[in-house]
């Protein structure tokens, strides 16, 4: 696993007229995982997008070393295409080999559905497919926004062990979830602690 590091200094995020959080700092090194917790609307997804570099911070800086893989509520797979082809596009795009493809599909237990167009997959199956896409990137930094949404108990355990394996290999994972996420040595960050005292 390439060297990876993810840090934020004094980060503030504004959506519309509202400052969601301010003065938020974090630092993650190889093998470390962080659980972003908090109620809906507190800014979990915004923080994930800030860390990914898709949003510009209102204040503060984000430092990233190593490639980033993002899982959010959208699968980023072509709905009309069979799952195998939709994932195959990303495999080639991210220059992963066939063996990695087999491993990723195996890990999320979607081997039987490769011929099914993505639009016929259920919410949980799409989520697992998107997780396979994340695995195919080979990126050391995983940003997972609500990775357990729509998953059954067995899949939840599978996702938790995948993230554990990723961190065990020296990867970094940030998991935004309002649900509990079972993972050893994971720090927890309550975003509501960084809510500004009054609207700015």
């Amino acid at each position: 696993m390439p060297v990876c590091h993810l840090a934020a200094h004094d980060l503030a995020c504004r959506r519309g007229d509202r400052v969601l959080f301010a003065g938020l700092s974090l630092a993650l090194g190889p093998g470390e995982a962080l659980h972003l917790a908090g109620p809906n609307g507190v800014g979990k997804s915004s923080l994930i997008r800030l860390l990914a570099g898709l949003l510009r911070p209102f204040a503060g800086t984000v430092e990233r070393t190593g490639a980033v893989a993002l899982l959010d509520e959208r699968p980023a797979l072509d709905l009309p295409m069979p799952l195998g082809r939709a994932l195959g596009f990303w495999r080639r795009f991210d220059r992963a080999d066939e063996a990695a493809f087999e491993r990723a599909v195996e890990a999320v237990a979607l081997g039987d559905l490769l011929d099914v167009p993505v639009r016929y997959l259920s919410t949980g199956q799409r989520k697992r497919a998107a997780l396979a896409r994340v695995m195919l990137t080979g990126a050391p930094v995983w940003l997972l926004d609500e990775p357990l949404n729509g998953l059954d108990t067995a899949s939840t355990a599978a996702v938790e062990s995948l993230v554990a394996a990723h961190c065990g290999n020296g990867g970094v994972a940030v998991i935004a979830s309002h649900q509990p996420f079972a993972l050893d040595r994971m720090t927890r960050l309550e975003i509501s602690r960084f809510e500004p005292a009054e609207a700015v």
Partner: peptide
């Protein structure tokens, strides 16, 4: 529109 909705542009931007 379909690519935007599916989040593909964000994925390309990350790469």
């Amino acid at each position: 529109e379909p690519d935007l909705e599916a989040g593909l542009f964000d994925q390309w931007a990350l790469r």
